[in-house]
């Protein structure tokens, strides 16, 4: 069983939803980013999404755009991202790692080579934001060969005709984007999310994770009642950004503050009973 499936089984047994946290690899620098990554699980993250930085993050709002840019300036890249996972895996063999990014850096790295090295490094899942299933053929097989879960997104605009296509190629879990918009934008109403999750479950037995626009503990707890996992990205990255000097250097309490914020989200979520 994959780490992702094992994690969702554990969550189910504990009758709670999981917390998926996001960070961009190498923001604000490789050492600090590694320190955050290494501390996330202890702080309460059930799964970790790592963003591969890209120069043109079209699906991201200002917070993650800035994060991506800081990472690139700090010298981050696809190979650095994989290296971070390797280092993480030396101490943690349980927490699932999902890489999230745009297709071009992966395509240029070489899709097959990327999938092989991702697996070897300890990556469990892959989300490629600008690669809909129609264009994903060249990634689907190499990912499958390496048993790396390919996770496609469902959104409020996804209709009943497209949903089966998305589900056909998705493994691990389905990621529901709760808003029409970029990351870190306004939040959807919890009723709308509940309706969407309910209708997704009619089509799939895969766990459902909800992300985009979840900022506060209250929102995370509300989503925790209805979905299998809640993804928090921009809010965590904003915490990180708040702990930078004017020239984007980390203040001494950056790692502690970011992990403290994650711990708060996780603790509240762990107290939330899943009602599904």
């Amino acid at each position: 069983m994959s780490r992702i499936s094992e994690k969702f089984t554990t969550l189910k047994n504990e009758n709670r939803a999981g917390l998926i946290t996001f960070l961009v690899a190498g923001d604000p620098d490789l050492v600090t980013s590694q320190a955050i990554l290494d501390g996330l699980s202890m702080a309460g993250a059930d799964m970790i999404e790592i963003g591969i930085p890209f120069s043109d993050p079209m699906a991201d709002g200002p917070i993650i755009q800035a994060s991506s840019l800081r990472a690139l300036i700090a010298g981050s890249s696809v190979s650095n991202t994989l290296k971070m996972v390797q280092i993480f895996r030396k101490k943690n063999t349980i927490t699932p790692i999902i890489l999230m990014g745009y297709y071009n850096p992966i395509y240029i790295y070489g899709v097959v080579k990327f999938c092989i090295e991702a697996k070897v490094s300890g990556v469990d899942g892959l989300i490629v934001v600008d690669l809909p299933p129609e264009e994903a053929e060249e990634l689907i097989k190499p990912a499958k060969d390496q048993c790396v879960d390919l996770i496609f997104l469902a959104t409020p605009t996804t209709d009943n005709i497209r949903l089966p296509l998305i589900l056909e190629y998705t493994s691990g879990f389905i990621y529901y984007v709760s808003i029409t918009g970029v990351t870190g934008a306004c939040s959807a109403s919890i009723c709308d999310i509940a309706d969407a999750v309910t209708s997704l479950r009619r089509y799939t037995t895969l766990p459902v994770a909800v992300g985009f626009g979840l900022k506060s503990s209250n929102q995370v707890m509300a989503v925790g009642k209805i979905a299998d996992a809640a993804v928090v990205g921009s809010a965590i990255v904003q915490k990180l950004a708040d702990c930078l000097t004017v020239d984007n250097r980390p203040k001494s309490d950056l790692v502690k503050n970011v992990l403290h914020f994650v711990n708060e989200l996780a603790t509240n979520l762990q107290l939330t009973v899943n009602l599904k």
Binding site: D130, L131, P132, E135, A154, T157, T158, D159, I166, T180
Partner: peptide
């Protein structure tokens, strides 16, 4: 019919935009 000229073209967009 999916907009490919050889290996070029296509539709590399986020799912939100696909139906549109």
């Amino acid at each position: 019919n999916r907009g490919h000229f050889g290996i070029y073209g296509g539709r590399y967009v986020s799912e939100t935009l696909m139906p549109l």
